[in-house]
Nucleic acid binder design. Structure first.
Lengths: 362, 362
DNA sequence: GAAACCATGGGATACGGTTTCCGCAATCGG
DNA sequence: CCGATTGCGGAAACCGTATCCCATGGTTTC
């Protein structure tokens, strides 16, 4: 009778309990379970029987400590409820699960301090990779901080993956999975311009957000290409949410701004804008056209269905995970800062029913 | 010079490295870092200096193994991108983070096999609690399987929490956090009935889904209370998605079904229904009224804004985490099957603009 | 002034597996 | 028929940390 284990047997069964009860050694049990060592059929049967009886599962912490252990990817995200990045998370998680990897998740709530704390927490967990989702705020300090993260993780045998934000400058051990943000905005704006719109209300997002900067830049380039002057007064910055879309349009109308189309930085912003236009008695798209960005499910659920830019969010997630998995199997970091560290996926305009040529003005 | 650690120093620094470099014992380093033992200022300074230099973080696996360790909650969810349960996940994760807990996340994709595999995986991880989100399919086997899960987890010192599904029968060590599903449906249907609607198309969801069953039951009760006959032909089952809403309405119209309102099982289904009505040239709410369920952000972003039932999803998540945290601090399972194992949160109707009294018929 | 006590720091052990190194038995070849 | 090879199971050494127990030096108390 084992001494350190009373009859009551609180807590979980250990590999020793299994070994004892099966009348074999601890090593044999381990071998049967990991299956990376030849064992006789008889032994396997005996062990598995007891494992079933005791409802035994191996202790993941012990296993990791001893060297084995399930690869784990940490997903750090601003807000789970944001549709776009929820899809990325789904892509990462799905691809991880497919390979038997585990997914940890943490939300930063746009707080740089929490982001830092979480990265450290994940470092403690010894995760295989940390995936950081979402556009970044372009503070001066950002580059330095991220570079530090990347190096810390790399030193610990882990790896940093940036999804949906621009790559880090210099020789930093990090992978970036990005999409053609500016190109999508260019195409979207071109779509409006070619439909004949000349006065467009632009709601790119927060001025400091890298995503918003790219979208604004793409739009501006399209205007230049069409030889249409770009009026800075027609740009309203603000958060990527419904309320901002609503208020920006409301304010613009109140200010007597003259526009025939709205170029929203996000589908959600577009939804808010649409609602505000309706509230003002304007029809979409007869009076004012609207386009969004992201192509989240909402876009096709609005009435009229929203013309928008499709971003392959879920695939970005899958690609991100594949990148770290490949690197892992490929034998660690081959060349830092080389190609293969920055993957860019394409975007394209999805034409639905929210754009029409501008109405003749009175 | 340590022998088992070459100069290259791949991998992460251990507590031993820190101790050695600071010229103190391993125990001292541990104490400085956990802070649960008095140490001199001098010692703390010395250790922290080296910790900073080496960028050391403790190995979470080793810590857990040794008894310490961060409490971890596992969130199992069908689909992260579903708005309703994403909010629950947010609530759980937020409350967890607030207490310094960690959140693991796994998606089941509606696959009972994966659910099983994930619960076992989480058991390996030694999680403090497993939170299972979302309505369950009411198979015969369900009760037994869940009861087994609950007991397994309980035996391993963990705990099962069911969110948004009915509690387990019998003496099972599990906690349920639920909302007044049937009551919400009753109130919602009553709202339609009191507006004068008599012929209502009901889209409750999948017939086997517990959530759908409750919503249907609540609606039926309301009809009875109003003395309005409930026509089974007006009920169309199907998944909780946009397409189902669209097709159900489309088919109903094609079949010549006569209805003045749609009682959708979900806001997303309502969105699909709304689109289909529009496509058929019907106006909402002038010709047909629509109501939803869940009150996800989409509900207020549609045009017209959707009257729906508010479910406190995020709070359910917080409550779920609080329940396990309390139980943990309260000294383990006090009484199994007693009260406090089933928490029910209230729902209420949110009146917006998608309901009008039925138009006079020709 | 001696004894009892406190505040700290160090050494050793436990946590639950994996894995390497060995030994034993059975089988095979000559 | 005997020695060598092969196959399989066991004992023990870690993995990195927390903690128990003990040693030490200084302080308090009688």
């Amino acid at each position: 009778m084992s001494q350190r284990k009373a009859a009551g047997d609180a807590g979980r069964a250990t590999i020793r309990d299994v070994a004892e009860r099966a009348g074999v050694s601890v090593a044999s049990v381990s071998r049967v379970l990991s299956g990376n060592y030849p064992v006789s059929e008889e032994l396997r049967r005996r062990v598995m029987k007891v494992v079933g009886d005791l409802d035994y599962v191996t202790n993941a912490h012990a296993r990791s400590l001893a060297g084995g252990g399930t690869p784990t990817v940490a997903i750090l995200i601003n807000n789970i409820t944001g549709a776009a990045f929820a899809h990325v998370a789904k892509g990462v998680e799905g691809a991880a699960t497919l390979r038997g990897w585990l997914s940890l998740v943490g939300t930063t709530g746009d707080d740089p301090e929490r982001e830092l704390a979480l990265v450290n927490l994940m470092r403690q967990q010894g995760v295989t990779a940390v995936v950081l989702l979402g556009g970044a705020y372009d503070y001066d300090e950002y580059q330095l901080r991220m570079a530090r993260f990347a190096r810390s993780l790399d030193a610990a045998g882990s790896h940093l993956v940036l999804v949906g934000r621009p790559p880090l400058e210099g020789d930093v051990p990090a992978t970036t999975v990005d999409y053609d943000n500016e190109g999508g905005a260019y195409a979207m704006a071109s779509h409006l311009l070619s439909a004949g719109h000349r006065r467009v209300l632009v709601l790119p997002g927060h001025a400091e957000l890298t995503t918003a900067q790219g979208r604004l830049k793409g739009a501006r380039r399209a205007f230049e290409a069409y030889g249409v002057p770009f009026d800075p007064d027609m740009v309203r910055h603000g958060p990527y949410d419904y309320e901002h879309g609503y208020e920006a349009v409301q304010d613009s109308l109140r200010d007597g701004l003259d526009f025939t189309a709205v170029l929203a930085g996000t589908d959600v912003v577009a939804a808010g804008a649409m609602q505000a236009l309706r509230a003002a008695g304007l029809r979409v798209p007869e009076d004012v056209s609207i386009v969004g960005y992201d192509d989240i499910p909402l876009a096709s659920q609005l009435t009229p269905q929203l013309t928008t830019v499709h971003v392959p969010y879920e695939e970005m997630g899958r690609v991100a995970l594949r990148a770290v998995a490949d690197r892992r199997e490929g034998g660690g970091s081959r060349r830092k800062g080389g190609d293969g560290d920055h993957l860019v996926l394409g975007t394209h305009v999805v034409v639905r029913n929210s754009v029409q040529p501008p109405a003749r003005r009175a």
